[in-house]
Design a binder for these strands. Sequence first.
DNA 1: CGGCCGCTCAACCTTTCGATGGATGCCGCT
DNA 2: AGCGGCATCCATCGAAAGGTTGAGCGGCCG
Lengths: 212, 212
Amino acid sequence: MTDPAPIRLLLADDHPVVRAGLRAVLETEPGFAVVADVSTAEEAVTLAALPGIDVVLMDLRFGGEMRGSQATAAITARPGAPRVLVLTTYDTDADILAAIEAGATGYLLKDAPPEELATAVRAAAAGKSALAPTVALRLMDRMRDPAVALSRRETEVLQLVADGLSNAEVSKRLFLSQATVKSHLVHIYTKLGVDSRTAAVAAATARGLIRR
Amino acid sequence: MTDPAPIRLLLADDHPVVRAGLRAVLETEPGFAVVADVSTAEEAVTLAALPGIDVVLMDLRFGGEMRGSQATAAITARPGAPRVLVLTTYDTDADILAAIEAGATGYLLKDAPPEELATAVRAAAAGKSALAPTVALRLMDRMRDPAVALSRRETEVLQLVADGLSNAEVSKRLFLSQATVKSHLVHIYTKLGVDSRTAAVAAATARGLIRR
DNA sequence: CGGCCGCTCAACCTTTCGATGGATGCCGCT
DNA sequence: AGCGGCATCCATCGAAAGGTTGAGCGGCCG
């Protein structure tokens, strides 16, 4: 028996070096064919619509406007879409959840060894999910602890606090009384299990709930 | 006339994909020879001591203990040492300054196009410095505004504050009185032009003076 | 050597923050 | 319709953090 049909790949990453590295790693492995590589999320969406793509390797953060999670959502929304395997440097909760909600089949970190990468691509092509160990662990943590969703208003307040604003400044910015700002903060502290504004900022940053 | 002697390179990066990518990019370019690639800063220091290395391409953050800047310092401290060209994802002040103080010849970002990379390596081999445009800009900003250098102790205090510790907790951790912690914080506020701990954390984070 | 700077600490007063408690309106569930 | 849960809003009060002043010590440099 000769070669089975190779898995056809589309690479989306804004780092030329990473694209070259993925090509090098995957093309030495048998059974993979890199069809194309692109440097923006927009191009990834366009090319993923072409027939003959089995798996898209997608970075999350690009230099441009569109985020990888948005591109993932756009791709997986179409019928007969290829599988999307997210491959990124970051393992924050916000990134991981956004990607999975967008329909990603797997989530890998860029420090993964080549074999793990190949295994994950094969799994994705077969429709099975593939998570990096670190990512799987983090998701387990999340399951045990479901109280980590801040409301829109709470996130808004905490983001301003993280930017260094005092309660008075936050209240002016959001047209609230200081009492309301404090009330939001108390709820935030409860959810995050902390008891000061700086600790809340640290915890929320660690969990990727706010941008730094 | 035939080929001149190629520039001999050592690659140090904990991402297998990036190492493969650098190899692929540099080996297609004429005049480069990748002698070895390593995945830890410690190995980089060891191998850089061997004769016959012209330029070390060094990542800053490794999975392990040693940081790229420390490895850079260890390498450049020796007589007849190769040039070290830092190649990283991050362009914060703290990273850049640490690398330059450690004796790095150049500082590139990983999203650099292949030609820029090749140019920088040739410049480094010739002993000329090579800075990514973003990095150069950031250094210029720094020059205009010299009041942004925290002392070692101040940085230590502010880092703990950023981690969410109260003054009492910081004082216990560092074996100081609370009065001393406050004193450091006041100096920090003055230097950063702010007037609260959260604002100081925000300003220092924005300037890359502390890790997040 | 005298002055500058980083690091350390104390006592005092002021401002801010956090804790507590309570109100309203929206939404889903029974 | 009635209920509980949640997000949003607000006021009051004691505790913690910040601001001020003042001071001692050791290292570095012109």
